[in-house]
Structures are given as structure tokens and as C-alpha cells.
Measured scan of single mutants.
Amino acid sequence: NQASVVANQLIPINTALALVMMRSEVVTPVGIPAEDIPRLVSMQVNRAVPLGTTLMPDMVKGYA
């Protein structure tokens, strides 16, 4: 199964993503693939992302 990017902490709106904020986990539904974690670093989220939430492409500015 494909691992997705999951929030490792609460990520406030407009926060630039850092490695420590993300982990990979096999979840349903599938979100952003875990292999894209390096690409996500320094991109901003466009909403608050609670701990344990799967990151979806529409949550990250400039990802989709």
C-alpha cells in the first residue's frame, strides 16, 4: 500500500512545512504520496491541519 503524508503536529494556516511536521503512514483515503515529502518542505498550507490529518493536494499552496 502507498504511504501518504500525515501531519505530525497541528500545522497552523499559512505555515511553511518542515520535515518535523510530517510523517508517512498508510491511510485511507490516500493523500499526497510520502515520496513527495522533500518537495513539500517550505510550501505553505492554506488551512489549519490538525495532528494526524492526511495532507491532500488542495491543502498545500502550489502543490497541485
Score class of each variant (00 low, 15 high):
residue 56 M to R: 06
residue 37 I to V: 06
residue 47 R to K: 08
residue 2 Q to R: 05
residue 23 R to N: 06
residue 63 Y to T: 03
residue 23 R to D: 04
residue 4 S to T: 04
residue 20 V to W: 15
residue 13 I to R: 15
residue 35 E to L: 10
residue 24 S to Q: 13
residue 53 T to D: 13
residue 2 Q to A: 13
residue 43 M to H: 09
residue 34 A to E: 12
residue 55 L to Y: 00
residue 29 P to K: 05
residue 6 V to N: 01
residue 49 V to Q: 02
residue 11 I to C: 03
residue 47 R to F: 06
residue 36 D to S: 14
residue 55 L to E: 00
residue 29 P to L: 04
residue 8 N to Y: 04
residue 30 V to S: 13
residue 32 I to E: 00
residue 18 A to Q: 15
residue 8 N to G: 06
residue 60 V to Q: 00
residue 57 P to G: 07
residue 45 V to W: 01
residue 17 L to T: 00
residue 9 Q to R: 15
residue 9 Q to A: 11
residue 61 K to V: 13
residue 60 V to H: 02
residue 43 M to V: 04
residue 48 A to Y: 15
residue 32 I to N: 00
residue 12 P to D: 08
residue 45 V to S: 05
residue 3 A to D: 07
residue 49 V to T: 04
residue 52 G to D: 09
residue 26 V to T: 09
residue 15 T to V: 07
residue 11 I to T: 02
residue 11 I to A: 01
residue 39 R to D: 05
residue 64 A to M: 11
residue 40 L to Y: 01
residue 45 V to K: 00
residue 44 Q to V: 10
residue 42 S to G: 14
residue 54 T to M: 03
residue 52 G to Y: 05
residue 58 D to G: 14
residue 5 V to S: 02
residue 6 V to A: 02
residue 33 P to L: 09
residue 5 V to K: 00
residue 4 S to P: 02
residue 17 L to C: 03
residue 57 P to D: 05
residue 47 R to C: 06
residue 13 I to K: 13
residue 2 Q to W: 15
residue 57 P to R: 10
residue 59 M to N: 05
residue 24 S to K: 10
residue 19 L to C: 09
residue 18 A to P: 00
residue 55 L to P: 01
residue 1 N to E: 15
residue 6 V to D: 00
residue 34 A to V: 08
residue 64 A to E: 08
residue 38 P to D: 08
residue 3 A to H: 10
residue 62 G to T: 08
residue 32 I to R: 00
residue 31 G to N: 01
residue 30 V to A: 12
residue 16 A to P: 11
residue 23 R to S: 06
residue 32 I to V: 06
residue 54 T to S: 04
residue 46 N to E: 07
residue 50 P to H: 10
residue 60 V to A: 01
residue 11 I to S: 00
residue 50 P to S: 10
residue 13 I to C: 15
residue 51 L to K: 09
residue 36 D to L: 14
residue 24 S to E: 12
residue 8 N to A: 14
residue 57 P to L: 05
residue 64 A to S: 13
residue 27 V to G: 03
residue 64 A to Y: 07
residue 56 M to H: 07
residue 41 V to W: 03
residue 45 V to Y: 00
residue 6 V to L: 07
residue 60 V to I: 12
residue 49 V to N: 02
residue 50 P to Y: 15
residue 36 D to W: 08
residue 7 A to W: 03
residue 50 P to N: 09
residue 28 T to I: 08
residue 40 L to K: 01
residue 50 P to C: 10
residue 33 P to V: 08
residue 33 P to M: 08
residue 2 Q to H: 12
residue 5 V to T: 08
residue 50 P to K: 10
residue 2 Q to K: 07
residue 53 T to K: 09
residue 1 N to S: 15
residue 28 T to Q: 10
residue 44 Q to T: 15
residue 6 V to Y: 03
residue 53 T to R: 14
residue 37 I to D: 01
residue 43 M to K: 06
residue 60 V to T: 02
residue 21 M to Q: 05
residue 29 P to A: 04
residue 64 A to F: 07
residue 58 D to P: 07
residue 46 N to G: 07
residue 61 K to P: 07
residue 13 I to F: 12
residue 4 S to D: 00
residue 26 V to F: 08
residue 27 V to T: 12
residue 9 Q to M: 14
residue 22 M to F: 07
residue 36 D to G: 05
residue 14 N to G: 11
residue 22 M to C: 03
residue 10 L to G: 09
residue 42 S to P: 02
residue 24 S to R: 13
residue 39 R to S: 09
residue 64 A to V: 13
residue 21 M to C: 04
residue 26 V to N: 10
residue 38 P to W: 11
residue 27 V to R: 09
residue 46 N to L: 12
residue 54 T to C: 05
residue 52 G to R: 05
residue 21 M to L: 05
residue 11 I to V: 06
residue 7 A to Y: 03
residue 43 M to P: 00
residue 54 T to K: 04
residue 37 I to A: 08
residue 62 G to H: 09
residue 3 A to Y: 12
residue 46 N to W: 08
residue 14 N to A: 08
residue 1 N to P: 15
residue 43 M to N: 04
residue 51 L to S: 14
residue 3 A to T: 12
residue 37 I to N: 00
residue 50 P to L: 11
residue 18 A to G: 12
residue 42 S to I: 03
residue 54 T to F: 03
residue 50 P to M: 09
residue 17 L to G: 01
residue 12 P to E: 11
residue 37 I to R: 07
residue 52 G to T: 02
residue 23 R to H: 05
residue 19 L to D: 05
residue 6 V to T: 05
residue 44 Q to K: 14
residue 43 M to I: 04
residue 19 L to P: 06
residue 62 G to C: 15
residue 21 M to P: 00
residue 59 M to R: 02
residue 59 M to T: 05
residue 37 I to P: 00
residue 34 A to R: 05
residue 35 E to A: 10
residue 58 D to C: 14
residue 9 Q to H: 08
residue 43 M to W: 07
residue 21 M to F: 06
residue 20 V to Y: 14
residue 23 R to I: 06
